[in-house]
């Protein structure tokens, strides 16, 4: 059994929905927007786990909670056997040297007035204040070299606007590397980039994983990319994981009706022109999660049971967990 590096158990991030004229609303029941609602999974050392979901599924909120950036987070998130949520502020700051985050938009994530050197070295000036000037320079240069911005002397004095989208994303990645983290959480790291650049950045992330023995937690909506980068995939819907398992087996033989539908509608050059079965309606608002199974109003296979009772997450085949009443554990792997 691989070692679990990051363990999430029953994580909830509920935002209070009462705002505005509270005076008149005093007697109304407290409403919550349940962005993350009962999320549980393990992240093993050295793997890449992709959390996939549509917008509104809570994947970004979850990613922020993992960094202890969400005050509303309740439940258990443990990293190296320490509960992040229960820890002190100092503990959380220490945590951020070991877990780093790559954000989605390489255009908005940098201060346009700072040089690349300043941007990349900033984590060092916060977390490792007593580093000598030379050491700091060496660490930053090494990070720039690792992300392919060579020679680093050419880049250190430049400003973000002088770089292309792909180069900016590389700078952001360099910034996460300087503290030598164990785990990198990437929130849609390539969704803003063109097709060819996407591959470039993903290949870079794969190289870095080997070179620096990193573990990745990647949040994305792009299923086609997960086949390429992820070891395991978790399909998230309305704040909960509906299916989790090894990437290839989930993509080739999805078990949950939602993952089946989601995987079928991804346009590819192979299925072009074919009529696709599309789920009707949209993902409900997280303030109004359906009773019973949260997916039942859109599910083509829902039964009376699904309307009243929330299913449990069961291990259907080894390492594959599905949150559905209608999928029963099997002894063998079969094509359903």
């Amino acid at each position: 059994m691989k070692k679990s590096l990051f363990h999430v158990n029953d994580l909830n991030v509920w935002f209070s929905a009462r705002k505005g004229f509270t005076l008149f609303q005093r007697n109304r029941p407290q409403k919550f927007i349940k962005a993350v609602d009962g999320l549980s999974f393990d992240l093993f050392e050295g793997e890449t786990l992709a959390i996939v979901g549509e917008s509104g599924s809570g994947k970004t909120t979850a990613a922020r909670a993992f960094m202890a950036l969400m005050r509303e987070a309740r439940g258990e998130i443990s990293f190296e056997d320490r509960n992040i949520l229960a820890g002190s502020r100092a503990g959380r700051i220490d945590l951020r040297t070991k877990i780093q985050m790559i954000f989605q938009d390489p255009f908005d994530a940098m201060n346009p007035r700072e040089t690349i050197f300043k941007i990349v070295s900033e984590p060092l000036s916060i977390h490792r204040k007593n580093l000598s000037v030379n050491d700091r320079r060496e660490i930053v240069f090494q990070a720039l070299r690792d992300v392919g911005l060579t020679p680093p002397e050419d880049f250190e004095k430049r400003f973000p606007h002088e770089l292309s989208g792909g180069q900016r994303q590389r700078v952001l990645i360099a910034g996460t590397l300087v503290l030598e983290p164990v785990l990198i959480i990437a929130d849609e790291p390539v969704s803003m980039l063109d097709a060819s650049l996407k591959v470039e950045i993903l290949n870079l992330l794969a190289d870095l994983r080997k070179k620096r023995s990193l573990t990745y937690l990647m949040v994305t909506h792009d299923l086609a990319l997960t086949r390429y980068i992820a070891d395991r995939i978790a399909i998230m819907y309305l704040g909960k994981i509906l299916e989790i398992g090894p990437a290839l087996s989930v993509l080739d033989r999805p078990l949950h009706p939602y993952s089946q539908a989601l995987i079928k509608v991804v346009p590819t050059l192979e299925n072009a022109g074919k009529k696709k079965t599309v789920l009707t309606g949209e993902i409900p608002h997280p303030s109004d999660i359906p009773k019973g199974c949260r997916f039942h109003p859109r599910c083509p296979q829902s039964t009376d049971l699904c309307r009243v009772q929330e299913p449990e997450t069961k291990e259907i085949v080894p390492n594959r967990f599905v949150h559905c009443h209608n999928v029963q554990p099997r002894v063998e792997h079969t094509n359903n």
């Binding site: 097709a195 060819s196 650049l197 591959v199 990319l225 086949r227």
Partner: peptide
């Protein structure tokens, strides 16, 4: 040709995708 080789596929295995060098 190169752009199509850089596209991830839903159906094929995990063949290495090749980016187009340069911008």
């Amino acid at each position: 040709q190169m752009l199509i080789k850089a596209l991830p596929s839903m159906e094929q295995g995990t063949a290495q995708l090749l980016p187009i060098p340069g911008v």
